[in-house]
Design a binder for these strands. Structure first.
Lengths: 206, 206, 206, 206
DNA sequence: GCATAAACGAGACGGTACGTCCAGTCTTGTC
DNA sequence: GACAAGACTGGACGTACCGTCTCGTTTATGC
């Protein structure tokens, strides 16, 4: 994952170790939360020496970003028949993910760390943000194919709209779930989706 | 805020200490960020003993919530003449606040901690969330007075809409600024506001 | 004990407090030992404020010296009929006293503290050492009256001998009981007394 | 001393650290005395982390016992030609040792602590008491070889006498020096030795 | 009998050290 | 050369006491 073929001599890195470490990290996050998770504990759970851990990740933040990125990759967007249904589906799945303790505790923590760490910011962007934008792009393409949304020819404008919708959806759900500490239930999702649909169909934003 | 007059005996708590500690906390957040901020360092900056600090706050999280809550209280919403202008104004002010390092680093960190701490969650809600909802309520009332938005008679529905708008605005801006790490500039604000205006004027959500 | 009538106006010091504090000190020594005894704990046990304590004693060492001095004052030397019997009696009584936890733990501790504190050294000497030498002087006078020991006319020599005998008896018993951690039983006392008797009857030392 | 070879894996403990710590402990005792000596200070002087210290010794008392035990091991008993001369010599050397501030302050302090700590009592006995009894045994053997003292065939009796003489000599000197706070000068030593010689030559005690 | 003034209880204060925990590095011997 | 083991330095943790301080309250006198 990190250096797959650096040199050739010496004992090669154990591939199994990577998976064990990331799984152990998620387990530890569930049990202990971000702030009480320690590198020593993770290495012990993974049956690996601390040095092995540090050889592969620079610190707790980097390790956790990789560990939770795998969680976010599990999100998918099957075709529910309409843009509205697609949005409701993805919001509910995302809210479900945020109910998992390892995601709740880790996401905001690494974002906080990243405010003072450029490299970490990049890592979050490439490992989580950019990978999840695929869902917005996919939903948009389907809606366009269905005729629910117009095609946008200007690629730059299209990308800006994708970014906006991504931030609106992800940001609102995260804020509702973690900051306001209110439940993301079906009723709320319906109201939110309605607001978003009207916003998207307004002439300027689509 | 903490108990100013529980009994009557003994030396009273120094009022000056509270202010010094909160200011020192913000200074330390700027210089060190959340994860490197230590209680010992804060007490030293404030010219106060560590015990004094622990006598008043249970830990770093509680202290930081109170310290940043004062920052958020500085947000205001002067009448800009239209709902659209009001929204753009508050979004820009909020984004400005999130550019301050003490707010950036602290906000997500305490939210992360709060995922495993019910009391902290309540403290964030009462010290930050509930206090800032006043801006949404104020903007809405003004818009209703101007005839830009209809009156909602059902109080429960009105409160649910307030909550939704609050989460959409705050959540989207935070996500754009801290997770996606993209600038909240005037162009983006205009696009976001346009989307929101259409959403609000749609029949169901208003 | 300390200044009972320095000036005239103002509330006089509570006499009861002194006794309560010394008793509380001994209780705390029994339960906690020297090193875990704290001024705050003593004040709480005595039902007295910490300030009251510090108004009367400079610190833990001074307080404890006074508290244990009262214990040592309880030692007495009834006439057992012979010098040998008198010595055996006082050694056994002294060993008994050293079996009490408050005496065991406190005596060596204050002596240790006194090695770097001239004032404390004086306090120990006047409150404990000099007061207990009375037992040696008394035993010696009785032995001389019985004709077991010769009279010593030179007062200086007599005082030096008193000091020596005091150090031999007290030192040996303390060392046996506290350093070597061996029991001071009747058999050992008999052997020690025999050695001492021969020493005293030797031509030079008497 | 501590466990040099329990398992085999991992980085071995630094041998140099032990010596540095014990030396630093003695230095700190000289400068600060027992009660102001802190583990943190010792670790800083030894150029060692506090954790390293706690990994090897359970606390201040254990550490100090080991540190002063090395001092006591420096006592020796060259043949001065007669029992009397040997006794005078060892008493003077011992008194000299007790004039060193690190020995004065530490010896009584650890004895005081040991009154509530069985393990510490054992450590003192094995590291200091038992090791110094060799001097008494040696002096006795020489005196017997010279014909100054009779041979004792009963081993148990011999050991009891050794213990008694050890307590008399060590206890008297310690008491004179630390409790009575009087000088151990040549005149006093001569008088004490005379008393002891008569005691030893008396029929019952030898 | 009423002011004066010291002693009192309560408990907050600035400090210091505690003993523990974790970070991240280094040093072994083994694979 | 990667690895498990575990000792290493360094530093923050949160707690416990220290001895001092600042309150409001109590209790003797002496005017």
């Amino acid at each position: 994952m990190r250096n797959p073929s650096p040199g050739r001599t010496g004992r090669p890195r154990s591939a199994a170790a990577d998976a064990a470490i990331l799984a152990a990290t998620r387990d530890a996050l569930v049990e202990l939360g971000w702030s009480k998770l320690t590198m020593g504990d993770v290495s012990a759970r993974a049956g690996v020496a601390k040095t092995t851990l540090y050889r592969r990740w620079a610190g707790k933040s980097e390790l956790v970003v990789d560990a939770v990125a795998e969680l976010f990759d599990s999100l998918e967007l099957p075709d529910r028949g309409s843009l509205e249904a697609d949005i409701e589906y993805v919001v509910l799945r995302f809210a479900e993910l945020l109910r998992r303790p390892e995601a709740r505790t880790a996401l905001m923590a690494v974002v906080s760390e990243s405010t003072r760490d450029e490299a970490l910011r990049d890592r979050i962007r490439s490992a989580i943000v950019d990978r999840q934008k695929r869902l917005v792009v996919l939903g948009r393409e389907r809606a366009q194919a269905r005729g629910e949304l117009p095609y946008e020819e200007d690629e730059f404008l299209a990308s800006r709209t994708t970014d906006l919708i991504f931030d609106v959806i992800a940001g609102t759900v995260v804020h509702r779930a973690l900051v306001s500490s209110e439940p993301v239930d079906e009723l709320w999702v319906a109201t939110f989706t309605a607001l978003l649909m009207h916003g998207l169909r307004g002439p300027a934003a689509a």
